[in-house]
Amino acid sequence: MSTVNQEPYRVGGKSFTAVAINTAAKAGEWIKSRLGDIRQVHVKYSPHDLVTEVDKGSEKMIKNLIMTHFPHHAFLGEEGVEPGPLASASALEDVSEAEYLWIVDPVDGTTNYVHGFPFFSVSIALAYKGEVIVGVVYDPMRDELFVAEKGKGAYLRSVKLNVCGQVSLSDSLVATGFPADRSGALAVNMAGMTAIVPRVRNVRNAGSAALHMAYVASGRLTGFWEIGLNAWDLAAGALLVQEAGGKVTDTAGSPYTLSVRNVMATNSSIHDEMQQVLQEAGGTGL
Results as ranks from 00 to 15, higher is better:
138 Y>W: 08
17 T>A: 13
272 D>K: 15
216 V>P: 07
226 E>N: 10
66 I>M: 09
97 E>I: 06
128 Y>S: 07
64 N>A: 14
179 P>S: 07
176 T>M: 12
73 H>T: 06
207 G>C: 09
228 G>F: 14
82 E>A: 15
22 N>G: 12
284 T>H: 08
57 G>Y: 14
204 R>G: 02
92 L>H: 02
254 S>I: 08
173 L>E: 02
208 S>G: 09
240 L>Y: 03
187 A>Y: 08
186 L>G: 01
266 T>S: 11
154 A>T: 00
112 N>L: 03
186 L>S: 01
234 L>Y: 05
150 K>N: 01
159 V>K: 12
34 R>T: 00
28 G>N: 05
28 G>A: 07
166 Q>T: 03
255 P>M: 05
129 K>E: 00
144 E>L: 15
42 H>M: 11
97 E>Y: 11
69 H>T: 05
187 A>I: 08
256 Y>L: 10
169 L>C: 07
105 D>A: 07
242 Q>S: 14
248 V>Q: 02
66 I>H: 08
186 L>F: 13
73 H>L: 11
228 G>V: 07
125 A>L: 11
119 F>N: 03
194 T>K: 13
7 E>P: 06
161 L>W: 02
103 I>A: 10
233 D>P: 14
74 A>H: 14
183 S>C: 12
3 T>W: 09
214 A>E: 02
89 A>S: 08
180 A>D: 00
91 A>T: 00
98 A>N: 05
